[in-house]
Design a protein around this nucleic acid. Structure first.
Length: 302
DNA sequence: CGCAAGGGAATTATGCTTGT
DNA sequence: ACAAGCATAATTCCCTTGCG
């Protein structure tokens, strides 16, 4: 049934008759005349294909169909009432809501374990759905609510979008622990430029930003391979003599599991912050506000 | 933007049914 | 038979839509 073609006001009519069991009193209850109430009941009968209420000596008796409808209609009206009159609240402990995030494989690797641990503790019923790719291409998805939050190395600050900083990072380069340069304490810019690089898909915004910065300095790097995902990049670097340029937090994370050496890039680099962005129509969404706040907090200690 | 036509729901007036 | 109460008919009012 298409609700667009249904006069939802008829639900309040139904409820009034159900409560009063009397057309004239039901009409007074909702502030209309008895014939109007009678006409509204006729439309309800037409809509449901059921008599709904039968005239008897002791008032209007509901049919089985009307009795079955009474509870769901009452519940629906209560929900609407609450929704319209009270500011919605979000209770993380009892919520079973699911949020869709597009945070990119970098943050999935780096951040997701802590986020999930925190959720398990504070909001055990809340679930996450991760969508890739992340980044500034997701305006449409944010707008139509198919994605709740986007993380990226660039804020989404167009009209209708909001962003806040999550954390800051600096760019480093990594290589296998068995790479000849791994033992060198401070590899030079020449060492860096001469190395054979693994390039991550510039769809990763921080890669795009960094590439542009380095190119503007006139530094040319040789790329042996271009990869779209972070995990293969980490393994490639760990098991070959190619090097990669990545945010420091990611480097440290991988170095806990893989034999990697982390080196400072011998350049005066700007910091590489990450942002979370959402659509401004969700500003008052209490659930999403809660999640955003928790994510910002978690990113601080991280 | 303003106006007229059309449609739907409310009101008033009235008819019809039912219980006492 | 009569009063109470629901349904129906006629009319009014208001909102939407289409056109100049």
């Amino acid at each position: 049934m298409n609700l667009r073609s249904v006069d939802l006001n008829l639900l309040t009519i139904f409820d009034a008759i159900m409560v009063e069991r009397h057309m004239t009193r039901a009409a007074a209850r909702v502030g209309m005349t008895q014939p109007a109430m009678s006409n509204a009941l006729a439309r309800l009968r037409d809509l449901t294909g059921d008599t709904l209420f039968v005239r008897t000596g002791r008032g209007m008796m509901p049919t089985p169909r009307a009795t079955a409808l009474a509870v769901p209609i009452r519940r629906a009206l209560d929900l609407v009432q609450v929704g319209l009159t009270e500011k919605a609240v979000f209770d993380p402990e009892s919520s079973d809501r699911s949020f869709t995030l597009a945070i990119g494989d970098y943050c999935e690797v780096l951040f997701l374990p802590q986020v999930l641990a925190a959720l398990q503790e504070e909001a055990p019923g809340v679930s996450l759905s991760l969508q890739s790719p992340a980044g500034a291409t997701l305006q449409k998805e944010l707008k139509d609510n198919s994605v709740d939050l986007v993380w990226d190395a660039a804020p989404l600050d167009g009209p209708g979008f909001r962003s806040e900083t999550l954390f800051d990072d600096r760019i480093v380069w990594i290589m296998s622990a068995s790479h000849p340069l791994a033992v060198k304490k401070r590899p030079t810019l020449d060492d860096y430029a001469a190395a054979s690089h693994v390039r991550l898909d510039p769809g990763h915004t921080y890669v795009h930003n960094y590439d542009r910065f380095v190119r503007n300095l006139g530094i040319r790097r040789r790329f042996a391979v271009e990869l779209t995902r972070i995990i293969p990049m980490a393994f490639t670097v760990a098991e070959t003599h190619h090097v990669a340029t990545v945010p420091n937090r990611m480097a440290e994370r991988f170095a806990r599991f893989l034999p990697l050496a982390i080196k400072k890039v011998p350049l005066d680099l700007p910091s590489s912050p990450f942002y979370q962005s959402w659509h401004s129509s969700r500003d008052d969404d209490p659930g999403l506000s809660w999640l955003r706040g928790r994510l910002v907090d978690l990113a601080k200690d991280f």
